[in-house]
Amino acid sequence: MNSGKKLSLHGMLQAISRVKIRRPITEEEWFITIGGSIIFLIFMMALLAPFISPYDPTIKTGASYQPPSWEHLMGTDKFGRDMFSRIIWGGRIPLVIGLVATIFSFAIGVPLGLLSGYFGGNFDRILSLVMDSIYSFPGLVLAIALAALLGSSVVNITVAIAVIYVPTFFRVVRGQVLSIKEELYVTAAISIGAKRRTIIARYIFPNTIPSIAIVFSLSIADAILTEAGLSFLGLGPVVPPVPDWAYDLQKWYGLAVSQGYWWLAFWPGFFIMLTVLGYSLFGEGLNEILNPMLREV
């Protein structure tokens, strides 16, 4: 392939072996694959909970405080409920809240970011100020305040978490729009008489999607952690005996430490960690792959 004397190692190996050497899988491709698989499996677990959970997670199915056994894969809690079933069911609330809250943030933050970045001026200044003030609060503190204010139901917690991530979307989209609107193809679109609406929706918005996708995945990870944080602090959306990972974690971690009932706190914590890890890997992988492309295009 190379003309001249410079031969690459790759080329030499190919010449010697006459076997096409496959390109190794890159780190970010691993990130996306592993992250995506984790998300997929956890979602399937929560979705198929009625079919795969061995027991009803809300009723007594055995003796209290049993360590993991073949009968109860993850042991039982104080009320003799099967932890494995509670884990399977307990993902539903954090997963739904994480996803729905992030969709809300997206639905509010993205259009505002587009308009603010495109039109600029005082509108942009005021909006940026508002967003920056929300952004300057630590997310969990703001969520606690909102949860305390609104009361903790599933809907209210979702709203509280959604508010936290609006500025994240807003800032990323606004920043992107500021650079994209200087692109020649946008000027070209104006020069052929495109309406403002068309320019924003058809020319600018699609070019912000790669960045939005990254923020989306990372925000879900963060939102799940925030939901867990709220539950842990007793501000969670769940009313016992409904299973929820973070609720179980905060309920039992004391016993896990003092009595050595490690399975009660370990499994809920592990699954929260796993879910967040899945989204984070996925988001980081997307970031690695899409950002060089953004620079290239």
Partner: peptide
């Protein structure tokens, strides 16, 4: 009125063909 003029009556070909087309369309 400008929008109606642009493209339909007067249009422009830009300097750089590499960047004057939307890469995602």
């Amino acid at each position: 009125e400008l929008r109606e003029l642009r493209g339909k009556k007067i249009s422009m070909i830009f300097q750089d063909p590499m960047t004057s087309l939307d890469p995602l369309m």
